[in-house]
Computed example of a mutant assay.
Amino acid sequence: MLVADVQPFEEMKLRLLNGAHTTLAWLGQLLGYQTVADCMADKELRALIRHLMLAEQAATLRPLEGIDLAAYADELLKRFENTRLRHRLDQIASDSSQKMPQRLFAPIAINLEAKREWSVSALAVAAWIKGLGSLPPVPDPRQDELRRAALCNDPVAAVLSLPSLVPDALRPLAEFQAAISVAFERLQGGAKATVTTTAKELRR
């Protein structure tokens, strides 16, 4: 496509495709999966990712004439299911500190301002923090400080308070850290149980 302004299309790709990838990278590893295709075989996780795309990420995008976001999301999910790609979760998880602002923090800020729910986004950030302290390290320019923070008594507060990580619009919002903390506590009871519970709640 030739368009006058590429930015809205870039945002669509960053949030729906890349935001889903980052969520899968961390939550999927906590579930014991190795690839994106492995994650897609989990029906409850797949449902969470579709909800993330359409209910949380798509809602933050500017309207794009001629673009059917539901069809785009389903096309992405079909691509994610391709077992031949062998897209490894630990590879996607690399450099997450550089990816979080565009892929998850920015849409979370928009949803908070609009008073929309963002429970899967909260779970994605919580899974990242949980994984920083419990999964094998992945390449990241801030790996050492992230891991130290993730191993503190209050990992959520420690990670989210690191300088130049969380956007200024989010940092002072008590409801932001509170929602991540709730999701993190749920993960303490097991990733599978958390995914199952969250999926049930979203179906109500």
Score class of each variant (00 low, 15 high):
Q91C: 04
Q91N: 06
I92F: 02
I92A: 11
A93M: 01
A93F: 00
S94D: 11
S94F: 12
D95Y: 12
D95H: 11
S96H: 12
S96Y: 02
S96N: 05
S97K: 08
S97Q: 05
S97L: 05
S97T: 04
Q98A: 05
Q98C: 10
Q98G: 06
K99P: 01
K99G: 00
K99T: 00
K99Y: 01
P101M: 04
P101D: 07
P101E: 14
P101R: 03
P101K: 02
P101W: 06
P101Q: 05
Q102D: 15
Q102M: 04
Q102F: 14
R103F: 08
R103N: 15
L104K: 00
L104V: 05
L104D: 07
L104R: 01
F105E: 01
F105L: 01
F105C: 03
F105T: 00
F105H: 02
F105G: 00
F105P: 03
A106H: 04
A106T: 15
A106R: 09
A106M: 13
A106L: 04
A106Q: 13
A106D: 15
A106I: 12
P107N: 14
P107S: 04
I108K: 02
I108L: 04
I108S: 11
A109I: 03
A109D: 07
A109F: 02
I110M: 13
N111E: 08
N111V: 01
N111H: 15
N111S: 05
N111G: 12
L112C: 10
L112M: 09
L112P: 07
E113D: 06
E113M: 11
E113I: 14
A114E: 06
A114W: 08
K115W: 06
K115P: 03
R116A: 10
R116N: 12
R116K: 13
R116P: 05
E117C: 07
E117G: 07
E117S: 09
E117F: 04
W118A: 15
V120H: 01
V120E: 02
V120L: 14
S121T: 10
S121K: 01
S121F: 04
S121H: 04
A122W: 08
L123I: 14
A124S: 14
A124E: 08
A124W: 05
A124I: 07
V125Y: 07
